[in-house]
Amino acid sequence: MEESRKSFDAVDLRILSILLKDSRTPLHDISRAINLSTTSCWNRIKRMTDCGVLESYTVKLDLAQLGYNDTVIVQVTLDSHSEQTLYEFGRALESIPEVLEALLISGDYDYFLRLAVKDTRDYERLLRERLYTIPGIRHSKSSFVLRTLKKVDTPLT
């Protein structure tokens, strides 16, 4: 895989940039934008897919349009750091659809969670019924996101 990373050139990055903006961009349009034949463009996309750089094609949703008006950042500390505890905590988070992202972190807390909720009452319900029922949580700290200043999934533009 390390060898494949070295083989990405400016044309590959331009293809990725186009797909990041709209993964439904037709191959013909991508080829034209980067001045490359459709066959060559397809071969590059296939190579990047085969080596795992292109993981999937997806859509972006406006969560507020679906009723999820607030984002909450929750920092969590666990009682134990055993492999079993970490595994079980991760499995429990997988069953909570409102958990958009869960990161094991260094520092004062063990986990950084990003949650989508409808409002403060919905967040209270989520805490009571789902999050605080997970065994092993020692402490948590929550912050409501007031405004998103920047949100990207990759440093490519």
Rank of each mutant, 00 (worst) to 15 (best):
S4F: 08
F8L: 15
D9G: 14
D9A: 11
V11A: 11
R14C: 05
R14D: 15
I15G: 09
I18H: 06
I18R: 09
L19G: 04
L20A: 04
K21Y: 09
D22F: 13
S23T: 07
S23L: 08
R24D: 09
P26K: 13
P26T: 10
P26H: 10
L27R: 10
D29P: 12
D29M: 12
I30E: 07
R32T: 12
A33F: 11
I34F: 14
N35Q: 11
L36F: 02
L36K: 01
S37C: 12
T38S: 07
T38W: 05
T39I: 13
T39F: 08
S40F: 10
S40M: 11
S40H: 14
C41Y: 06
N43M: 12
R44E: 02
R44D: 01
R44N: 07
R44V: 10
I45D: 07
I45V: 15
K46E: 01
D50C: 02
G52K: 07
V53P: 03
S56W: 08
Y57G: 11
V59E: 09
K60L: 05
K60T: 04
Q65I: 07
Q65R: 12
L66F: 11
G67V: 13
Y68H: 06
D70S: 01
D70G: 01
T71H: 01
V72P: 03
I73T: 01
I73V: 06
I73S: 00
V74I: 07
T77P: 00
T77E: 04
T77N: 11
L78E: 00
D79V: 12
S80R: 07
E83P: 01
Q84S: 12
T85Q: 14
Y87I: 01
E88F: 10
F89G: 00
F89M: 00
R91W: 10
A92R: 08
S95R: 07
S95E: 06
P97R: 07
V99N: 00
L100C: 01
L104F: 15
I105Q: 04
I105P: 00
S106L: 08
S106P: 02
G107D: 02
D108V: 05
Y109V: 02
Y109L: 00
Y111L: 04
F112I: 04
R114M: 06
L115P: 00
A116Y: 02
D119W: 09
D122E: 07
E124N: 13
R125S: 13
L127F: 00
R128K: 10
E129N: 14
R130K: 06
L131K: 01
T133M: 09
I134P: 01
P135I: 05
P135Q: 03
G136P: 10
I137E: 03
I137H: 04
R138V: 03
F144D: 02
F144M: 03
V145I: 06
L146E: 02
T148S: 12
L149M: 14
K150W: 13
K150T: 14
K150P: 09
K151V: 05
K151D: 09
V152F: 10
D153G: 14
T154Y: 13
P155W: 10
T157D: 15
